[in-house]
Simulated scan of single mutants.
Amino acid sequence: MRIAIIAYDHISPFMLSTPLAVFGEGLLAGGHQVQVCSDQFRLNTGGGMIIEAAHRLDAVDDADIVILPGWRSVNEPVSPDIVAKLKAADARGSIVVGLCLGAFGLAEAGLLDRRRATTHWAHAETFAARYPGVTVDAAALFVDEGRVLTSAGVASGLDCCLHLLGRICGIGEANRIARHLVVAPQRAGGQPQLIERPAIGSTADRRVTELLEVLRADPIAPPSLDELAKRSNMSRRSLTRHIRARTGGSLGEWIRRVRVARAKELLVAGVRGLDDVAVRSGFPDAHALRTAFRTEVGVTPVQWLAHQRIPGAALSLLSGNPS
Rank of each mutant, 00 (worst) to 15 (best):
R216W: 12
G298N: 04
A263M: 03
A89N: 07
V97W: 06
I3G: 10
F41I: 12
V36I: 14
H32Y: 02
A84I: 10
D58Q: 15
R257Q: 07
V208C: 00
G133Y: 08
A107G: 04
L267P: 00
A29V: 13
V136P: 01
E227R: 11
T119L: 06
S250H: 02
G157N: 02
P132S: 07
G190F: 05
R207W: 02
S73K: 06
P69E: 08
F23D: 03
L181S: 10
L101N: 02
R241Y: 15
K264E: 13
G153P: 11
D58R: 14
R231F: 14
G166I: 05
D61H: 09
L194E: 03
D90P: 04
S224C: 05
H287T: 08
R216D: 07
D81V: 01
A245R: 05
L289V: 14
A89W: 00
E296Y: 02
G273S: 07
A59Y: 07
L106Y: 04
A109W: 00
S38V: 00
W254R: 02
V297G: 02
G166V: 00
G48H: 15
R176V: 08
S323G: 11
S12K: 06
M234T: 12
R309L: 15
G30A: 06
S38N: 13
A184Q: 06
L158R: 07
A109S: 06
I82L: 05
Q186S: 08
G201K: 09
I65V: 13
C100S: 13
L28A: 15
G102M: 07
D90Q: 13
A292K: 02
G146L: 09
L318I: 11
E108Y: 07
T150E: 07
